[in-house]
Design a protein around this nucleic acid. Sequence first.
RNA 1: GCCGAAGUGGCGGAAUGGUAGACGCGCUGGAUUCAAAAUCCAGUAUAGGCAACUAUGUGUGGGUUCGAGUCCCACCUUCGGUACCA
Length: 932
Amino acid sequence: MEYNPREIEQKWKKWWAENEVYKVSNDSTKPKYYVLDMFPYPSGAGLHVGHPLGYIGSDIYARYKRQQGYNVLHPMGYDAFGLPAEQYAIQTGVHPAKSTATNIGRYREQLDKIGFSFDWSREVQTCDPKYYKWTQWIFLQLFEHWYCNDSNKAHSIKHLTEVFESEGNARVNAATTQEAIFSAAQWVAMSPKEKDDVLMNYRLAYRKTTYVWWCEDLGTVLANDEVKDGVSERGGYPVERKPMLQWSLRITAYADRLLGDLDTVDFSDAMKKMQSNWIGKSQGAQLFFQLDEPNHQSPITNHQLEIFTTRPDTIFGATFMVIAPEHDLVKQITTPEQAKEIADYLAYVNTRSERDRMSETKEVSGAFTGAYALNPFNGEKIPIWIAEYVLKDYGTGAIMAVPADDERDMRFAKKFKLPIVEIIDKSMYPGATIEDKQGKMINSDFLDGMEVMDAIENVLQRIEAMHIGTRKINFRLRDAIYSRQRYWGEPFPIAYDTDGVAHPLPFEELPLELPELDDFKPASGAKSPLARAENWVNFKPGWRRETDTMPGFAGSSWYFLRYMDANNETEFASQKTLNYWQDVDLYVGGTEHAVGHLMYSRFWHKFLYDKGLVPTKEPYKKLMNQGMIQGKSAVMEVRFDSGRILELHVPVSLVDDEWRISLEKFSGIQLTDNRFEQIDPSSHLTVVTDEDGTQHIPLSQRVEKMSKSLHNVVNPDEMVERYGADCFRMYEMFLGPIEQAKPWDTKGISGVSGFLRKLWMLFYEEQTGKYLVNDAEPTKEELKVLHTCIKKVQEDIERFSFNTCVSGFMICVNELRSMNCSKRAILDELVRLIAPFAPFTAEELWHLLGHETTVCEVAYPVFNAAHLVQDSISYPVSINGKKRDLVDLPAGMSVPDLEKAALELDSVKKWLEGQTVKKVVVVPGRMINIVV
RNA sequence: GCCGAAGUGGCGGAAUGGUAGACGCGCUGGAUUCAAAAUCCAGUAUAGGCAACUAUGUGUGGGUUCGAGUCCCACCUUCGGUACCA
């Protein structure tokens, strides 16, 4: 019988499905284990060989745990709302629901081919109303809660209004943007709209006018993590800062817990660092500077300038103040003489896109307002400037500039010829940079002579005693903008009355489903296409629905909980199942979600924890990041007469072994890129003529991200078709460490393919097809080979080193073959050992061994150290680290015995003749070194 | 700039401080074949040598150690994240 993976796979795929082999019960006495993959966005391009890498790794681990006796939850679903489907709808008129369903169908087909042990009865799709009913519900919970900094958890808004009614807001310590203090009487006197406005400053999901990233080309706002390098992450379109009325989530309320609880989870250091950098906690002081008012005529409502600094000790070096161009004070404090200069500067700032601002960070620009602030300690007048380098968003949007101790302030001072006062003597710390907190204070009044760290503490105490400021912790983390002006997302379960007050929809009306539309283009006035569904929007007289939709991260922020109880119609998941499954034991996915999805889902989980709805503080115990599988792309250089050089990607399928493309094939390329059409091979390309007269264009090879647009995609279907799913799975693992980025090379797959065939040949003789399995007693040597493999593989699986597991299998099978070992006792364990990696083949072999059970449920082999014991061990002997020879010594000797025995060997005595032994270094089982 | 990860054959990559290059690809030679594919066997870090063998070798320069790819210090390069964050 021949090894025919295609036949085997067909057979067992069907059998698994019919017998619901991978269906998981929520009711089990076995210990639970939850293995989760980051669910994919079903794009139109389908899967390429890079996508399944993490899924294969997690599937191996899930199968391994199952064989170890755990009840393993290993689900899969789709992150199905999103921009690409909508962009596609705008271009083609195909409803996003339809194209998404098609894509999901294709994904499912591709995934099924690879033999994953997913429990598909728990599949979730974020665009399914049955699912997003609960996304909307959780949003409403956020809407109905506020964050109390005293108890450090979320409480209901109802509770808050009760406090307001009895005593006002003075004593409420909340995560809030509410500034005005009001009494109970004032609260009661407020109109519903005024109350709504106040409460919006407390709600965890709130609506407010904020500066947001607006992307004109996408017609929507974007969250911070959706903007990269000053352009949109999706599509790479320019973005601009714009004030808009938007829903946001108060993730900043949880900043400290999101940071602190990183200590309790098993993420890589790099991942934790990325998150803590994103949260960006910094300790310092909030400080008020009085404005020097006599200087100008226009009335100032606010008599002080509030700044944030981490270095209050440097206050005597503050020779100017800088506020952000968008700062509220700019208008009020600008003097008539400076008005034109400021207006010009603001106009200039307006013309600059975010990308401009980022690309020229070394360029200094700014303008003087004409106003002055007063140093609270010595009353010195300090000029107030505006400049781009101070951001409206961070801290208070204003700083005291200390050129002597801050590089940016220094550049600014030099450019605008502002004074620089040295305040820290760093002469005793030769290596210290300008910003190190080292040195002795000088020119600083009462701080003179102090060490920097002491000076910070000293000045903080004075600031607090004088009531001119407080200690303050600032976070870089911003609240998450939660509105998108798009169609293909969850509608907000919110309606506005005639006053514009936001009301949550009653629970019975959930889910609020998307209205049907034919036209998916954004509506005029930066509105979502939903605004055009008038009957839906004005669903009853005097009411209007919210027309924005929720962002992509909404549905993905809690999907791992839904898998636990995916078909529950009365709760997002029952308390019973939540208590059984608890949390995700192993989460596998890419690093690209470090600051987006992972932060949001941790935040939602913590909120649900506060509400007592989930049993754990963190959703994911352990995180494993799979690396990218890169493609090899072929790049040709196009030279234009102007001297411009353009690099174009050529489909790798057209490239020959020597990385060139024949002119003939090149002219046959479909010109999808309009830049292609202007290219004349004879003048714009390097064309090489061979001896036989054929012409080629030489190409350069580049390893980069696998992507349709780079024409370097390798399709997993072809690999499975040709070599079988098991071979594909094992080869993906064999490529290298799962966490590393590595290039795909189809050539190498033949090695793994050969291995599986050799494994098969332990059961059947190749030529005759004779069944070889026999019941003879295994020899010591055979058991040693097997158990060496068991030990290695088990250790390697535990540390996710799947590539070395595959090597282990290869060595084992090669050795068994060379021993002609087809003994049942050996093969029985080998098949179970290999099952997580090659489930189809293992299943077939398991039945060939005469078993009726399915291999994915039988126990994983247990390593028995007794089989590794040897009679004697060959030790390499070195003298002074210089290798001499191998000597055989009995196994099981203690270190002192080994030392003695080594010195008594004849060969060793000969080498040592006439020399005195200083020391003998013995590593049992490894080596012996004699120092003379 | 800051933070993080990584530098080992022609390639992907192995190696609890203990014989560097496992395993696989590729390549070379041989067997089989009319021939090819497939398969099997042998070889394959570099330099020298017919060979046994010798010397040198894990980005660079130092250090610790009987012994360093692995640990420490300084530097170089590549990749990823992040950025006027006060």
